[in-house]
């Protein structure tokens, strides 16, 4: 097989030398639209994942009469961390608009604030885990709570990592007014994760009633 592949490449290289093929570079605008479409497709794909999880919640968390149930959670804590997470989207947005105007200081402030708020949210979820009255194995209400918040927290954590990378690259001066795809991508991903939480918050904290017995 090796000989065949080598010959294959001899032919390729021969032709290569003959015609001096060169890479047809994309314009930055073309590259940007490709990146944007790719990211949006990724988010559509992720939407299917979270939609599937919501379907599982809708099917599983019901009582015998068919009305929705939900796990017993700390409502104040849930409201506060939800508020903080939504606020972090605003901070990311400020960071992104700042870099598109070339203001590196406000960019760092915005992204940095979002990282801190994201971390507070994650710690909040972890605290909710630690004070929960139930274990994952007790019943589907508790199980779905750990599953949904866990899957979401995993995405929040990756989002925080992306924002940290973006912050670091911004500090190094790798982003300009015109070229800051990394910032745009992380911001969009962050907004997406926030929107997911809006649905998950409603699904876990608001709709349905806490069942009498676990």
């Amino acid at each position: 097989m090796a000989t065949a592949i080598e010959r294959h490449h001899a032919a390729v290289e021969h032709h290569h030398d003959e015609h001096h093929h060169h890479v047809i570079e994309f314009t930055p605008a073309q590259r940007l639209s490709m990146n944007r479409l790719g990211l949006w497709l990724f988010l559509i794909s992720e939407t299917f994942l979270f939609a599937g999880i919501l379907v599982a919640r809708i099917v599983l968390l019901r009582d015998e009469g068919g009305s929705f149930t939900r796990p017993e959670l700390d409502q104040q804590l849930g409201l506060v961390i939800t508020f903080i997470l939504l606020l972090s989207s605003l901070a990311v947005y400020m960071g992104e608009t700042a870099i598109s105007r070339g203001e590196i200081g406000r960019f760092k402030a915005g992204i940095g604030a979002a990282i801190v708020m994201g971390l507070i949210f994650t710690v909040g979820v972890g605290y909710e885990w630690s004070i929960a009255h139930f274990a994952p194995s007790d019943g589907v209400e508790g199980g779905m709570f750990f599953f949904m918040t866990g899957m979401h927290a995993l995405h929040v954590l990756t989002g925080i990592i992306f924002l940290m990378i973006v912050y670091w690259n911004g500090r190094l001066g790798n982003y300009t007014k015109q070229s800051h795809w990394g910032v745009e991508a992380s911001a969009l991903y962050w907004h997406f994760v926030d929107v997911v939480w809006v649905f998950f918050y409603v699904a876990l904290y608001l709709i349905g009633h806490v069942p009498e017995v676990h």
Partner: peptide, 21 residues
């Protein structure tokens, strides 16, 4: 791994849900 009873009817799970997903 962690015994979340998604598909255990005794603890509120639903095996048909798996088939749908």
């Amino acid at each position: 791994a962690v015994d979340i009873p998604f598909f255990d009817p005794a603890r509120g799970g639903d095996v048909t849900l798996y088939q749908h997903l």
